[in-house]
Structure formats: structure tokens, C-alpha cells
Lab assay of single mutants.
Amino acid sequence: EAHAAIDTFTKYLDIDEDFATVLVEEGFSTLEELAYVPMKELLEIEGLDEPTVEALRERAKNALATIAQ
């Protein structure tokens, strides 16, 4: 499951495998979680700032909209 989540994140969020791995290690496994989890939870991840989190959430929401079509 972790590998599938990493693949999904790299494909749809335009991030590298290392960043995707950090997200999975922090407990995220779906685009929905990244799109809708409280921003505070993402900001608790070391190295993430508000602009990065906002961009990540926007990419996740856009990916979900694209997949739904």
C-alpha cells in the first residue's frame, strides 16, 4: 500500500519520491487526505511551510477533480 501511495503522489502531485515517502511515513496514503486534512496537520511535517502546503493541497484537489472526470 505504501508503494502505491508513493506512486500516486509522485504522479499526481508532481513531487519526487523522497517527498512522497515522507508524506506516507507521516501517515498520508490518499490524495483525499492531503486535499482535506486540516492544514495544521501538514504544517507539523518538518520542512513544510504554508506556501508549500497550500500548493500541495491545491494539486491534490486538482488531481481528484481530474480523476473524477
Rank of each mutant, 00 (worst) to 15 (best):
E1V: 13
I15A: 02
L13M: 04
P51T: 13
I45T: 03
T10D: 01
E46M: 14
P38L: 08
Q69V: 07
P51A: 15
L31V: 04
T21H: 10
T21S: 10
S29K: 14
L56H: 00
E58M: 08
A5M: 09
E44C: 08
S29E: 08
D16Q: 06
G47Y: 06
A63W: 05
I15C: 03
Y12P: 01
G47I: 05
P38T: 11
L34F: 06
G47N: 05
A35I: 12
E41F: 14
A55P: 01
E32W: 15
E32V: 07
D49H: 04
A2Q: 14
L64N: 01
A5K: 07
I6H: 05
E54N: 12
H3C: 10
R57H: 06
N62D: 09
P38M: 07
T21D: 04
L23E: 00
D18Q: 12
I6M: 07
T30C: 04
L48T: 05
D7R: 13
A4F: 11
I67L: 09
L48P: 02
E25W: 09
E32C: 12
L42N: 03
E54W: 10
A2F: 14
L56M: 05
E44P: 05
E44G: 13
H3T: 12
A65W: 11
T30D: 04
I15M: 05
L34I: 15
E44N: 14
A60D: 01
D7L: 14
Y36S: 13
E50M: 13
P38I: 07
A5F: 07
L42W: 06
T30F: 04
D14L: 12
D18Y: 13
S29Y: 13
E25S: 15
T8C: 10
D16N: 09
A60G: 01
D14Q: 12
A68R: 06
T21N: 09
E46C: 10
G27Q: 01
A63L: 05
E44R: 15
H3Y: 10
F28Q: 01
T10C: 12
E58G: 04
T8G: 04
A2N: 12
K11W: 09
A65S: 09
A35P: 02
L43P: 04
A4P: 09
A2L: 12
A60C: 05
E1I: 13
E44Q: 15
A60V: 08
E25R: 15
A35N: 02
L64D: 00
V22F: 15
V37I: 09
Q69I: 09
L43H: 05
E32A: 09
Y36K: 09
A55C: 10
A55R: 12
F28E: 00
L23G: 00
N62R: 13
A65E: 09
T66C: 08
E17V: 15
G27L: 02
L31N: 00
E33I: 15
H3A: 14
K61R: 12
A63T: 03
A63E: 03
R57I: 15
D49L: 05
A68D: 08
F28R: 01
I6E: 02
A55N: 09
R59V: 06
L23K: 00
L64R: 00
E46W: 12
L34K: 00
V37D: 05
E54Q: 13
I45Y: 03
Q69C: 07
E33F: 07
A55V: 09
Y36Q: 09
F19K: 05
D49P: 03
I67C: 05
K40F: 11
A5E: 03
A4I: 10
A60F: 03
L34H: 01
V24C: 05
S29M: 15
T8L: 15
F28T: 01
P51M: 13
T66L: 15
I6W: 04
K11M: 09
M39E: 06
Y12R: 02
V53E: 01
E1S: 13
G47V: 05
I45K: 05
E1D: 12
L43D: 03
V24N: 03
D7T: 12
E1P: 12
K40E: 13
E1N: 13
A35S: 05
K11I: 06
I6D: 02
A35W: 06
D49W: 04
D49Q: 04
T21P: 00
A60E: 02
R57Y: 03
D14Y: 11
A63Q: 04
E46V: 14
L31K: 01
T66A: 13
E17S: 10
E33K: 12
L13K: 00
G27I: 02
E33L: 11
R59G: 07
Y12N: 04
E50K: 11
I67N: 06
L43G: 04
K61Y: 07
F9I: 03
E17C: 10
N62A: 14
A55S: 09
K11D: 03
L34A: 00
G47W: 10
T30R: 08
T52M: 12
T30M: 05
V37R: 15
I67S: 05
A5W: 07
H3W: 14
I45E: 01
N62T: 13
T30G: 03
E54H: 11
Y36I: 08
E26Y: 15
A20Q: 01
A4M: 11
L13Q: 00
V22Y: 14
N62L: 14
T66P: 03
L64V: 05
R57N: 04
K40A: 13
V53F: 06
G27D: 02
I6F: 04
A63K: 03
E46Q: 12
Q69T: 09
V53L: 12
D18G: 13
A60W: 02
A68Y: 07
I67P: 03
R57G: 03
F19E: 03
E54L: 11
E17Y: 14
K61A: 08
E33G: 08
A20M: 02
L64P: 00
A65R: 09
T30N: 06
E41D: 11
L31P: 01
K61T: 07
F28P: 01
S29V: 10
D7Y: 12
L64W: 03
T10F: 04
A68C: 08
D18K: 13
M39T: 10
K40L: 10
F28H: 03
E26H: 15
P38H: 08
Q69L: 09
V37A: 15
E46D: 12
T66N: 12
R57F: 03
L23T: 00
V22D: 02
A68V: 08
L43E: 04
E44M: 14
V53S: 08
V24F: 14
L13E: 01
T66D: 09
D16C: 06
E50L: 14
V22A: 11
A35V: 13
L56R: 00
L42T: 03
E26K: 15
V53N: 01
L23F: 03
L13N: 00
V37T: 13
L64E: 01
E41N: 12
E33N: 06
L42V: 05
P38Q: 08
E17L: 13
F28Y: 13
A5I: 14
V22S: 07
L23I: 03
T66E: 12
E26G: 15
A20E: 00
N62P: 00
V24I: 11
E46K: 13
V24T: 05
T52I: 08
E26W: 15
I15G: 01
F19L: 14
T8R: 12
Y36T: 13
A2I: 13
L34M: 05
Y12A: 04
E32Y: 13
A2S: 11
Y12D: 02
F19V: 10
L56I: 10
E46F: 15
Y36M: 10
A63G: 04
E25F: 11
E54M: 12
